[in-house]
């Protein structure tokens, strides 16, 4: 068939962007973007909105016999609570190196896993621990103290009743 310039487009002429190609590309892109958004959405799955763990806050009643510099470790808590002339304070006993529970003693804290040592105020005195032990927020109550493992305070923060 001869094509006369300027004549209307023939049924047999190739389309500028073939319809099938356009449909193919469109479905490819929409499938791709649907997958991408589904993936992004499902990446939220591994992190639950509420974490299954015991509450971070707890109340502690210090025994009268607790001496100055002696650690009181509440049951099932990785926290050491102290009382001295200036007040009450709590130091986390989770090693800042790799998360082992450090043991409070007369000269400070000792980590059994890789030999880190901490002074009585939590400062690193030896070993691989990169940071001092965290001081935790203590709020005085009626004869008890509320300790929050989730909130840290600057070292040296002590509270009185």
């Amino acid at each position: 068939m001869t094509v006369v310039p300027g004549s209307p487009r023939s049924r047999l002429d190739p389309e500028p962007l073939p319809r099938r190609d356009w449909l193919g590309l469109a479905s490819l892109w929409s499938a791709g973007s649907a997958m991408l958004f589904a993936l992004l959405g499902s990446m939220r799955l591994p992190k639950a909105a509420i974490v299954a763990a015991q509450s971070k806050g707890f109340d502690v009643a210090l025994p009268e016999s607790l001496r100055i510099g002696e650690a009181f470790v509440p049951p099932n808590r990785a926290v050491a609570v102290f009382r001295d002339a200036e007040g009450v304070y709590a130091i986390s006993t989770i090693c800042t190196h790799l998360g082992c529970v450090v043991k409070p003693g007369a000269e400070g804290f000792e980590c059994p896993c890789h030999g880190s040592r901490f002074k009585p105020d939590g400062a690193v005195s030896r070993g691989p621990a990169p940071r001092p032990l965290a001081w935790l927020k203590v709020t005085p109550g009626d004869g008890i103290f509320h300790v929050d493992e989730g909130k840290t305070v600057p070292p040296g923060t002590k509270v009185t009743v």
């Binding site: 992190k47 974490v51 299954a52 763990a53």
Partner: peptide, 12 residues
């Protein structure tokens, strides 16, 4: 967190 599914090593 991705590994433990929680802050502590537990059932998750």
């Amino acid at each position: 967190f991705l590994l433990l599914g929680s802050d502590t090593l537990g059932p998750e």
